[in-house]
């Protein structure tokens, strides 16, 4: 996914006033993504401490036995406070959330790099912070766990398709000036497990989407935030699309069309369109909760509606993230993330 959330970047040495969470600034000494990457899996599922920011980002659309729609999020962020890849200069942050039509819970965790309470190993795969983990022999089958005062979950993710490399072979451009990140996804997870909510344990099934991304300066200085969509249509086609907002206007957009089964993969720069149809007041701000999303080249013209408009992540670095329903030319569901709405 693109530039997701990220936050972290708020820290030191970074001028926080520019771009969301200080993402839009350059700092000397970090590694920079270069075109035509050659990934080395499973090693690249692990951490890349030479880059400033990195994340392991899972969202899942779930259905309870009684038919209720739900969603969950599990994210591990890594940010470096200083170049050089030193463990002590790394800070880890975890976000976990569960969303139903009526409720939304979000919590965060932090860990310092010089105390082993968070980290990622590639083989066997284990990404963890405190007791939260995404772990398995390989990325193809992992167990995802998180706990919080009001919820917990323990679900299994089984890949039913290949890894998807966004942009040009995993080199994902974020602006006309050339800011870029390494970015690949696993959008074909089938999910099964249990959500613990206040007063009930809910058996759920559904689909999940993993994003892996790392970079050192993924936003240009004038970009303020982004709207990011991961949509799964009935029939198996998927669409990942984002738009980066600049000065209140629509800025750079990008989309990856993922054909059913993952065989067909088409990148579209500046073809993806997203228009806010309805805003809701969430946490004191106006946030779009109903969108018109189009990708004319593929005949996509759909309405994307939040399952729960209140899916605000009121954490140290706040943003909106929650499950959505898709209607129109294509039917389906997915996840929406919106940052930089102040």
């Amino acid at each position: 996914m693109n530039v997701r959330v990220l936050l972290v970047f708020l820290w030191p040495s970074v001028v926080a006033a520019q771009g969301f969470a200080g993402l839009g600034t350059t700092v000397e000494g970090y590694d920079d993504p270069v075109p035509d990457p050659v990934f080395d899996f499973p090693a690249d599922h692990g951490a890349h401490p030479g880059y400033r920011i990195e994340w392991w980002y899972v969202t899942a659309n779930l259905t309870a036995e009684d038919g209720r729609d739900m969603g969950l999020q599990w994210t591990l962020f890594r940010t470096a406070l200083a170049p050089g890849g030193d463990a002590a200069a790394q800070v880890w942050m975890g976000h976990a959330a569960v969303t139903t039509a009526e409720a939304h819970f979000a919590v965060e965790r932090f860990s310092r790099g010089d105390v082993p309470t968070a980290g990622v190993t590639a083989a066997p795969l284990k990404a963890f912070i405190d007791d939260w983990a995404m772990a398995g022999e390989t990325l193809d089958e992992v167990r995802l766990t998180a706990s919080a005062p009001e919820f917990a979950y323990d679900v299994t993710l089984r890949a039913e398709g290949p890894l998807i490399l966004h942009g040009e072979g995993g080199y994902s451009v974020k602006s006309d000036e050339g800011q870029a990140s390494y970015y690949y996804s696993q959008p074909f997870y089938a999910v099964e497990g249990v959500l613990s909510l206040p007063g009930e344990d809910v058996a759920v099934t559904g689909s999940a989407w993993l994003d892996r991304e790392w970079s050192s300066q993924p936003l240009s200085e004038t970009q303020e935030g982004w709207d990011w969509f991961s949509l799964s249509f009935e029939g198996g086609d998927k669409l990942m699309g984002f738009r980066l907002r600049e000065g209140g206007e629509e800025g750079y957009t990008y989309a990856t069309w993922i054909g059913a089964g993952g065989e067909e993969l088409v990148p579209y720069a500046r073809a993806f369109e997203a228009e806010a149809l309805e805003r809701a007041t969430v946490a004191g701000r106006q946030v779009p909760v109903r969108w018109r999303v189009r990708l004319p080249e593929r005949g996509v013209d759909v309405e994307v509606t939040a399952l729960n408009p209140e899916a605000w992540m009121g954490l140290s670095f706040p943003y909106w993230e929650g499950p959505v329903r898709v209607t129109g030319s294509h039917e389906g569901r997915g996840y929406l993330e919106m940052t930089g709405y102040e």
């Binding site: 820290w11 030191p12 040495s13 105390v115």
Partner: peptide
């Protein structure tokens, strides 16, 4: 540890921007 200390403890706030880095680094 400013990252895990309960809110309000310690001299720096997590969202205090640049300070956290100097405190930690």
């Amino acid at each position: 540890d400013p990252l895990t200390a309960p809110g309000g403890l310690g001299p720096v706030e997590l969202d205090g921007g640049a300070e956290v880095g100097r405190f930690l680094g």
